[in-house]
Amino acid sequence: MALLTMSGSPHVHDNDSVEKIMWGVVIALVPALFVSIWYFGFPALKITLVAVASCVAIEYLIQKFLLKQEPTIKDGSAALTGLLLAFNVPSNLPVWEMIVGSFVSIAVAKMAFGGLGKNVFNPALVGRVFLLISFPVDMTSWPVPQPLMQGGFFADAITGPTSLGILKEGLGTGQTVNELVMKMPDLMRDFLGNQGGSLGEVSAFALIIGGIYLLMKKIITWHIPVTYMLTVFLFTGLMWLINPDIYINPVFHILAGGLLLGAIYMATDMVSSPMSPNGMMLYGVGCGVLTVLIRLWGAYPEGVSFAILIMNAFTPLINRGFKPKRFGELKNQKG
């Protein structure tokens, strides 16, 4: 008989893995990718492939030649970062800028902190904000959607502003919300994805489908997305009730811009978000408040990326202060 294996309990394990989680999120993003290709054509596919390939390649090169360790690109985390980064840029971004953004995401935001699990900030968002600050024009020239069959797969895109951009600029010149809404796609188009915007953020419908998949697969929990969206809804709703001439309705705020992409896929990034249910809810509320503050009173039309990155920085403190409910810790008893 062979030697017996010795190890501590438990002796059975759930057959889940890091790979399954990462590829699960990738699968959840596929519907949104299809919608993007439908409306933005070949450039959307091209920029996505460039981002995924560069993120994976950069991680491989750093691990192999710089850190001299076994590359772990098969775990899917680099590919996911690439996909999310692509989802956060306009589909007509120059390829070289996409590669620079991927480099910042993987090399600076992830590997410099120690690799998977060690990064403080969401790597894809760090890459996006780097690009936004470095190439502000390219990062805000949004292609106008042209459904696949009408525009032609390889047609050069015409660019136009996003709804949030129209709003911010218009309000700055003294126009009312009602006048500006006329210049925007209606909410149904926002819902389906027929609007200008970053590659992956345009279709609320596809993003929600993917979100339901993630909840069913138990890859994410409801705490962060629901508190995030609810906070945005209530906060913007309150402002809208106070003065509908300068504050647009809350449904618009939910469907426009990157809120759904951010709330479902970016803020829920396991590595950079809190661990306890209470902590997650506080984090979600924080993301929501910051997003609205930036959208309504900040310099940028959109605040999702900044809001999440700022809350990422608070995650260690939230983990310290918000513990799960301990079993046997009764109200009238000190622990």
Partner: peptide, 22 residues
């Protein structure tokens, strides 16, 4: 046992702990 990978802070251990620990 499976190969040990880095903690990805998924918080599953927190959510399954019957004693509410981390």
């Amino acid at each position: 046992r499976v190969v040990i990978k880095p903690c990805i802070r998924c918080a599953r251990c927190v959510s399954v702990c019957p004693m509410g620990l981390e």
